[in-house]
Amino acid sequence: MNNKPELLATAASLEEAGVLLDAGADALLIGDDRFGMRLAGHFSLEDTAAVLKMAHARGCKVYAGLGGIMSNDQLEGLPGYVKALGELGIDGIEFGDPAVLAAVKQQAPGLKLHWNAEMTSTNYATANYWGRKGASRVVLARELNMEEITEMVPLLEMEAQVQVHGMTNIYHSKRKLVASYMSHQGRPSDGGSLGKERGLFLIEAERQDEKFPIYEDENGTHIMSSDDICILEDLHILMEAGVQSFKIEGLLKPAVYNAAVVRAYRTAIDAFAADREQYAFDESWLEEVRALQDPERELSFGFFYKEQVY
């Protein structure tokens, strides 16, 4: 009962990894662009080893994201990478594609597996299915609401991870949509990057005040939410429900911002663990985050309090 939930953050670089651990993260999610999906940054095996050393020295964990939708080409390097991660002592691997399961079974049996299919991890029974295939944690879809999350946690035969802060992917195509558009305009890309660092965004005709970041990488085109989830105010609901890991998505955010977010959630988790009876959210915990929040991006509850129809 006294086990504190894990506070997990994504790191974009070795430096940021250190900053986030300093801020109070219990675990970091990093990875290699060849196999990961929408990683905050790319980590070579050498950097991965450095992060592991830094984290393990503080009793913290490091997970590798291998959430790519794999094509035949990617299978070739996969076993070697998984083997190397196992040898480095990685604490777990996130996967969506069953190809990763096979590689782990062969190359690093016993390695902890976290099932993360992003928007399609939507029910407890499917999570338990992947549990029977070896997963010990499910990363829940960000499109679930609070009721769905709290009713499903006790039904899980594995740990649950919930993203509590940051942006989410809302559309992923293998197509190069920005480059295609520029070619269509007759102004093929000026050679400038179409990646994360460019600051590209879309505005839909009838939603002028919402900016949807868009970028291209080796996995195609990604469109991101116009708001940032921030569940801190109601984190106690998820802590009471027994969610074992809270994720802070740091993609497309500066390290200084992510560190402020980690500090805020650290404070809440520690306060809850210290005295859950007296626990109350304190607005001041969010001050630093609010001061650094991009004024054009709303902090919202995401889908936590939404009812969706179909």
């Binding site: 399609t120 879309l202 505005i203 900016k211 949807f212 969706q308 179909y310």
Partner: peptide, 26 residues
């Protein structure tokens, strides 16, 4: 899901990919 609160993976897709958008750079 984001534009209309309709769950695309349960049959609610409203084909927002065919809507019109403007592209900007920050």
């Amino acid at each position: 899901n984001h534009f209309t609160d309709r769950d695309s993976n349960r049959g609610g897709c409203c084909q927002s990919c065919r809507w019109k958008y403007d592209l900007f750079e920050d």
